[in-house]
Write a protein that binds this DNA or RNA. Structure first.
Length: 268
DNA sequence: GACCAGGTATTGC
DNA sequence: GCAATACATGGT
């Protein structure tokens, strides 16, 4: 991974709190810390244990890529489009909450909603900006307050998820060690959390790399690019494959022009 | 205005 | 099981 390719990881749809500044730096907040990455500071990233883990620097993505490229030509195309994508180790609560907000929504607006929540309910972060709000903080917010920040019909979902995390009813430490189907079931027990959001929380928040979020783009991609395949076919790193394919698909909508989005998302 | 955006819950067949 | 519909909101 080099600095120039950072955008592949930070702007491929897995996180909502990073931005590229006009002068070409990347700025973001995670784990209550603000980070500004430039061409100059980037090489020292591995020295910080927190950020090394956040960017999953200990994993050999070259081997994962090579395996994908051998498996299937379409998968190889997706990998080559943005080979430097890595799956971040995000905070589980932040991932769950962010993807609850993602339903029936676009990435630009999700970023805005998350930014407003952080500004209103997040503690000041070390170095600048605000941390993602603690579950406790959002559990204590009124539904009307969350709606006022633009959360819409997702407001009660966020509040209830926050409450269950805050009181320990939903335990991320447990989710880390449960078999995937059982972890998924615990998550979908929350109102407003279905299979897609659950898999996002598992993949992005708990780093379960075999979780495979299937949104509209992935459903289209599966029909068109991988007919007859299912998530298990992608193997133990199915979630990584999903990220390559999701990003590739979103940036090649012409591949699906003759599809009628159907089979899934209906918002209006 | 209609249509869409990383879905989910509810209802009716 | 599976299709239809409501759910807020902002951008094109």
């Amino acid at each position: 991974m080099d600095f120039a390719a950072l955008g592949q990881t930070l702007a491929c749809g897995q996180c909502f709190r990073w931005r590229k500044t006009p002068d070409g730096a990347w700025e973001g907040v995670a784990g209550g810390r603000f980070l500004r990455l430039t061409e100059k500071s980037f090489p020292r990233l591995p020295e910080d244990p927190f950020w090394a883990r956040y960017f999953d620097l200990g994993r050999d993505y070259g081997a994962i890529r090579a395996r994908f490229c051998r498996m299937d030509p379409a998968l190889a195309r997706a990998v080559r489009y943005a080979p430097d994508i890595r799956i971040l180790n995000q905070d589980p609560w932040e991932a769950l909450c962010s993807f609850i907000l993602s339903q029936c929504n676009n990435i630009r607006r999700i970023r805005g909603m998350v930014a407003r929540l952080c500004a209103a309910y997040g503690e000041p972060a070390r170095g600048g900006g605000h941390a993602f709000p603690a579950p406790r903080a959002l559990a204590a917010a009124g539904e009307g307050d969350l709606r006022a920040l633009g959360c819409g019909f997702r407001a009660p979902y966020v509040r209830e998820a926050a409450r269950r995390v805050a009181c320990g009813e939903l335990d991320f430490a447990l989710l880390r060690r449960l078999p995937l189907p059982q972890a998924r079931a615990r998550l979908t027990a929350l109102p407003g959390v279905g299979p897609k959001v659950a898999d996002c929380a598992l993949l992005y928040g708990l780093h379960r790399l075999d979780a495979f979020p299937a949104d509209v783009w992935m459903k289209r991609a599966m029909r068109t690019l991988f007919p007859g395949r299912d998530p298990a076919w992608f193997g133990p790193y199915a979630g990584v494959a999903q990220q390559y394919v999701f990003h590739y698909s979103r940036n090649h909508p012409e591949l699906f022009r003759r599809e009628n989005a159907g089979a899934g998302a209906r918002c209006s």
